[in-house]
Nucleic acid binder design. Structure first.
Lengths: 221, 221
DNA sequence: GCATCTTTTGAGAGTTACTGTCATAAGACA
DNA sequence: TGTCTTATGACAGTAACTCTCAAAAGATGC
């Protein structure tokens, strides 16, 4: 692993979609700079995925990706702090948190989570239909990517716990974190299960089943 | 990260404790070779932790650790495939799985899990009382270590799911994996919560609380 | 349209965590 | 004691990053 990423002046730009860029949030359409950054980010990732498909993940170096995307290696790292981040971006998780926040506060928790997850999943699939399949393949085949996903999930847990705390029905911070951890752990396993079998069953259906299992709890078994 | 660890002829030796070494399992006391390996492993880790305490994790290089332990860098990597593995060993998880297997099959699942976790926790703490505290600190402070733990937990999920499948009360493989993921996710958050606050509350008490939350399920909230 | 100010980019040098190979040393076993 | 197996060290190589600095390019006021 890298030497634990101390403070760096490399600031990766905002998300791929433009949905979360400050300018977009402010309503005005983004300037040239913003649009160029989004394009660069897209290009880097697209070229990377193309190379991964051709040569495999490990056999593809960052230098090759940068060359293919016609940027310098420095620039690559400004956009993606690690190579694994090409595959595991944190675009998905904030989306889910937003969707969760949009649910009515008095809705049963599990139902809110179900809607939030499915809604954000729908958006991601709609946005990048091709890449989802390749992500799945990389997740299944490359240990480093799995590791990075696990790390990402674990770091999302804190944010989710906070969101849960703001809702009713949770006693304290610790309980919120346990619930968040259990939920995310279940989701992670669901995605992994789906990816391992090459996605035979519909992911949506799997998620529904997983949530049912969670709803019943571990008691009475 | 490393280039995803392809097949290597470096085989890290067995666990620290000797509990799981083949010779120990066979009843005969281990030969000189085996004892030396255990000692080397212990020395490397001890020197590493000492240096971490003195200079910090990131500031300590593998070469320094190897020098302090009086082995070559090559040998270091034969014992610990990555630097993070010094902190996050998979010694704990197999212990828990063993303990789980030892529980009566007709015991309620949650109770088996509780006993298994607490039993293995007790063993680890008894074995290496000092190192537990430092592990906790590193877990809290070093992102790379947290990442490695998340990866480790996620890889344990498969084994736990299998163990659950062999017990009654689980419908299919998928359900077992979801349960395993939820349980481990909850445990991971528990440990992180505990480490973040510097371990104010007793870890055992926290685990009990977490299991109670799991027992109640996410339904009815 | 020009001047200035800010942000992005590229170049390049350096660090470090690894991988792979081979000869040597040391325990196991007859 | 001799042979066979396994652990070790030396060494060379790779690739993922980090850091710094100067140049290029969009943004902004006039």
């Amino acid at each position: 692993m890298n030497p634990a990423r101390p403070a760096s002046d490399h600031r990766p730009p905002e998300s791929d979609t433009g949905r979360h860029t400050p300018a977009a949030a402010a309503g005005a359409r983004p300037g040239l700079r913003e649009r160029k950054k989004i394009k660069t980010r897209r290009t880097i990732r697209a070229e990377a995925f193309r190379l991964f498909a051709e040569q495999g993940y490990d056999a593809t170096t960052v230098d090759q990706i940068a060359a293919a995307a016609e940027v310098s290696p420095s620039t690559f790292f400004r956009y993606f702090p690690t190579k694994e981040d090409l595959v595991v971006t944190d675009e998905y998780d904030p989306l889910t948190l937003d969707a969760l926040a949009a649910r009515p506060a008095d809705e049963p928790l599990l139902q809110s989570l179900r809607h939030a997850v499915l809604e954000s999943l729908r958006q991601v699939v709609a946005d990048e239909p091709d890449e989802v399949r390749q992500r799945m393949r990389l997740l299944r085949d490359v240990p480093a990517v799995r590791g990075r996903m696990a790390e990402s999930v674990s770091s999302t847990a804190g944010a989710l716990a906070e969101a849960l705390s703001r809702r009713g029905g949770v006693h304290d911070v610790f309980e919120a974190r346990v619930l968040a951890g259990a939920f995310l752990g279940a989701m992670q396993e669901t995605v992994l299960y789906w990816s391992e079998d090459g996605g035979p069953e519909d992911l949506v259906a799997l998620i529904e089943r997983a949530l049912d299992v969670l709803g019943n709890g571990l008691g009475r078994r």
